[in-house]
Write a protein that binds this DNA or RNA. Structure first.
Lengths: 202, 202
DNA sequence: GAGAATTCCAACCGCAACGTTGTAGATGGG
DNA sequence: CCCATCTACAACGTTGCGGTTGGAATTCTC
């Protein structure tokens, strides 16, 4: 049988994503990743270097997936609510990414792929600023802060699930509660970003 | 010299707070806690049980400190913006608590002191609901979700410092940026919670 | 003031984790 | 067809962790 190096690489990375998202950098063991992938542990070191490098690879990969799934931010921000709603859906369906981000922030180590990501966020900020100048978004908040808070609003539910549970009294996989949360996020973003008077459709 | 059991207990707990907040449950070692406190490791087990119990003790303690420092939520929510601003200041000055909360949520294990905390949050939700009925807060969002998002807005900056840095381009200990962030949080909460037309003081 | 009880500590135990090494099989150019 | 090269793996070495134990020093109790 021919080698399937790309396949083993992919399987290792998928296993690493699950393990890292679940247990974090410190709680994850290289042996468990290899075991989950059904591949020998040593391959991890050959392909990805050490644990830290593997974590960074996994994180940048998941960020890319999000960007590809959601597509570029809508040219106009008229419908920012729905855009963030889709963002929220994504985070609830794949909590991997938010969890990886939180662990990255908590660890305080090097930031994976910092240059690319900074550039991405600066683009985003510029887009927000343009929409504010066009009057589509309110300019009450500075564009970078607005962008940051919008991310927060859609990611916060996944970030502190225990608070969410204690406050709402609902389980994480409750479908009707999910819909209620989504609606709240959409409405909150509209209140935050849209000029007063817009989105009056109650 | 007389025994100072309460003192050693306190020193151990303080050291544990720092270590747990910094490195998380998995990244923290009992030996390092003891070393930081200058006390023998075995005392930790005598006083606090095992690692998990120590973590829960530390977390509930920090939650109590926040509640005592900020005092009860203001009877009326007219000034919810400033209240949340003080909350934000606290989290920036003592990031311990938010970090512990994030780690608790990520670990997914048992929630420390769940009964008390649930009761606390339900009280909070009731207070929000009352303010909504009184017309002080807008009832656009359900009170539990509003409470949850308000917490998120003031804690999100500490939760993903690397995103904050990449978006704002500012260091975490930049004083003018702190003021700017605080103002954004206050304004955002007002937009989120207050009826349209209130807080028009630009 | 003697002995029970408690505080404190150094040393230890079992175990699991990271990362490496030595080797068996597969591949491909000359 | 041969040998350098690459993939893959089992087993290992070392380190460091959570938790325990035996005993010395100190305080309390009667």
């Amino acid at each position: 049988m021919a080698w399937d190096t790309e396949g083993t690489r992919r399987r290792l990375k998928e296993a690493a994503t699950v393990e890292f998202a679940e247990h974090g950098p410190d709680g994850t063991t290289m042996a468990r990743i290899a075991e989950r992938a059904g591949i020998n542990k040593e391959r991890l070191y050959k392909y990805f270097g050490d644990k830290q490098a593997l974590f960074e690879t996994v994180l940048t990969d998941e960020l890319k997936k999000l960007a590809e799934t959601l597509g570029p931010p809508p040219g106009d921000f008229e419908n920012i609510g729905e855009f963030v709603g889709r963002n929220f859906d994504y985070h609830v369906a794949h909590p991997h990414l938010v969890r990886l981000l939180l662990w990255e922030g908590l660890a305080g180590g090097p930031v994976a792929d910092e240059a690319q990501r900074s550039a991405f966020y600066q683009d985003k900020t510029r887009a927000y600023a343009a929409a504010q100048r066009a009057g589509i978004l309110d300019d009450d908040l500075d564009p970078d802060h607005l962008a940051f808070m919008v991310i927060g609003l859609s990611a916060w539910w996944v970030s502190t699930p225990q608070l969410a549970r204690m406050l709402t009294g609902a389980d994480d996989d409750d479908a009707t509660e999910h819909a209620r949360r989504r609606a709240s996020v959409v409405r909150a973003v509209q209140r935050l970003a849209r000029p007063p008077g817009a989105d009056r459709a109650r």
